[in-house]
């Protein structure tokens, strides 16, 4: 049965803007923002998840939150953009195990096969009646981001799903 565990405390920023004008942000981040739909990029604990053509979810260790925000704001001062702290808006969960695809498939209508949802893919989607961000971090592990008031529901769904998977 796939194992569900809370993710580490994380800083979360939503970065929005026109892709062509965000080169400065990439310098501050230290890596290129993923421009391909539903893909993630990152180095050393910092990640950018493509959520939409003008929207990225930036994840970083909680300790560097303020420094990262300051660096990004300084770097992008001349570029129209929006940077909003959503660290507390949502929580992270990690679902891991050999039957992780089947467990998620109890509530998620996406094709989760490795060919259709490869490692590194990320997207907003639904799990039963809740919206989640689903991010495959390795073959048998998904990172889930969910708005905090939906987290109990999402945990509940995943627990029942895990128990009824086989």
């Amino acid at each position: 049965m796939a194992e569900l565990s809370p993710a580490l405390e994380t800083a979360r920023l939503i970065l929005r803007g026109r892709p062509a004008e965000l080169d400065a942000a990439e310098v501050a981040l230290g890596f290129a923002l993923p421009r391909e739909a539903c893909r993630s990029a990152g180095v050393s604990g910092r990640h950018a998840l493509w959520l939409g053509p003008d929207e990225w979810l930036l994840l970083a260790p909680a300790a560097v939150a303020d420094a990262l925000t300051a660096m990004l704001e300084a770097a992008t001062a001349q570029a129209p953009h929006a940077l909003v702290d959503v660290s507390q808006r949502q929580i992270g969960l990690t679902l891991s195990g050999s039957d992780v695809e089947e467990t998620l498939a109890a509530g998620c209508p996406l094709d989760l096969d490795l060919k259709a949802f490869p490692v590194g893919m990320c997207t907003r989607t639904v799990l039963a009646k809740a919206e989640i961000v689903l991010w495959r971090t390795d073959e048998a592990t998904f990172h889930i981001e969910v708005w905090r008031s939906f987290s109990a529901y999402v945990r509940g769904i995943l627990e029942v799903a895990g128990a009824t998977v086989s």
Partner: peptide, 12 residues
Amino acid sequence: LDVWLTSTTEQW
């Protein structure tokens, strides 16, 4: 327009 929206309902 150069403006972007982010839900912060649950941030606060």
